[in-house]
Design a protein around this nucleic acid. Sequence first.
DNA 1: TCGACACTTGCAGTTTTTTGCAAGAAAAAG
DNA 2: CTTTTTCTTGCAAAAAACTGCAAGTGTCGA
Lengths: 249, 249
Amino acid sequence: MLKEERQQLIINEVDLHNRVLLTDLAEKLDVSVDTVRRDVKELDAGSKLRKVHGGAVSLGYTHTAARSSNIYALNEKMAIAEKAVSMLKEGAVIFIDGGTTCLEMARMIPPKLKLTCFTFSLPVALQLAGMPHVDLIFIGGRISPESMISNGAYTIQRLAEVRFDYAFLGTGYVDALHGLTEFDWDVVQLKKAVIRASKKAVLLCISEKLNSQHRFKTCDIHEINTMITELSPENNLLNLFRNQDLRLM
Amino acid sequence: MLKEERQQLIINEVDLHNRVLLTDLAEKLDVSVDTVRRDVKELDAGSKLRKVHGGAVSLGYTHTAARSSNIYALNEKMAIAEKAVSMLKEGAVIFIDGGTTCLEMARMIPPKLKLTCFTFSLPVALQLAGMPHVDLIFIGGRISPESMISNGAYTIQRLAEVRFDYAFLGTGYVDALHGLTEFDWDVVQLKKAVIRASKKAVLLCISEKLNSQHRFKTCDIHEINTMITELSPENNLLNLFRNQDLRLM
DNA sequence: TCGACACTTGCAGTTTTTTGCAAGAAAAAG
DNA sequence: CTTTTTCTTGCAAAAAACTGCAAGTGTCGA
């Protein structure tokens, strides 16, 4: 077998599976691991793939890692945000949760729309503060450094004093059977308070989170009025969420 | 499983759920917690996520605001901030006002110093939220878009419920005779409330503002305990402020 | 055809990387 | 303040990578 031919096969294999082990390649091509190693090293030098300890990965594969400098799954989140913004009516009193999806939504609020927005997320507040027609009220309290939101008993008390037309919420995990869950107990208490304070709760959630769960439960699915994903409402992935007194969007 | 592959999965999980525990990752990936810890540490070093005690959080949340390039008289403000920071003692409960000088001060807080900080300024809060040893409490309310601080009756009420060891304040205008004055009546009410809530008030003020005044009065000079300018305390420009029961710094 | 030469391939020994474990330190929780 | 969890550090075993070397292969010109 020619070296050239072998290297082409290696590239094919890598592109096909995104990642391969050197030992697998050696077995498949019936050459020694050293040979494969040398081939992979050359291909790496020629930018045909990326060599890593124990194997090789395709360039596209690692490229997704570079994207994380921005926001994960930004396109999906923008699609969700667009749908969410379309629900907004002039003069509404709404709440916007923290999290990147909700931040995207805040960004997309039409500049001319008059709104009263509550939030406890610093990034969301910063975004909304620049909008002249938005009346922005920050719900204070102890700021949790990881999520940049206020949280704790004080914040929950403040939430008991208000009532929103709509609350736009994110969640860590969501499952048709187990509802909305989080791994953080404090966050659950906070989200419960938000849901109590809102006439209608709208969940913004990318489809990748569907059917995942964690230890602490925020609420059941039927306590949510509308669930927005980046998918079409007819998508099969949403089947489990039908007939739950839930509007899909 | 390749290390590369594993790290990619960790990034996905973190970006997806915003926050994950090391132990959960270890279980999911079927490796020891130590390995996950090392991976997360590497990814943190590569700015793919942020490591926190017991887990990792996504960067989407926590991009700390870079200093906007052109702050007026930055060097002077940094000199003031440095003096202000030198007053801080371990465990103190302080308030930090909005404004660029106070923001500079927030930036300069030593990373290891344990503090409880109150503020109603979004930029200051964002700055402080990145400091692990600072217990940060945001005083909520309606956000005034020009200054990015909460203001109004609600905020003033909240201020009535707390008591600071030190309040670090800015002011629009200051004069030995007329005291601290502002252009904006609402701001005056707010600053009054801050001074009432603090045992000691520290004024941060560049010398350029000395001997200027405006319509609405916050307080007299003697209600301030310490005044910090970028000048040496012996400087002649400060002569009018001596013998006012005021410490110059 | 022969031999010089460059290139490739596999092997063995050494070095580096990865991984899990354990003990003490540090940090969070109660 | 005490208990529990997490972090750090050093260590050792295993896996992988690198290095030098020798054997094999093919090319080219005399």
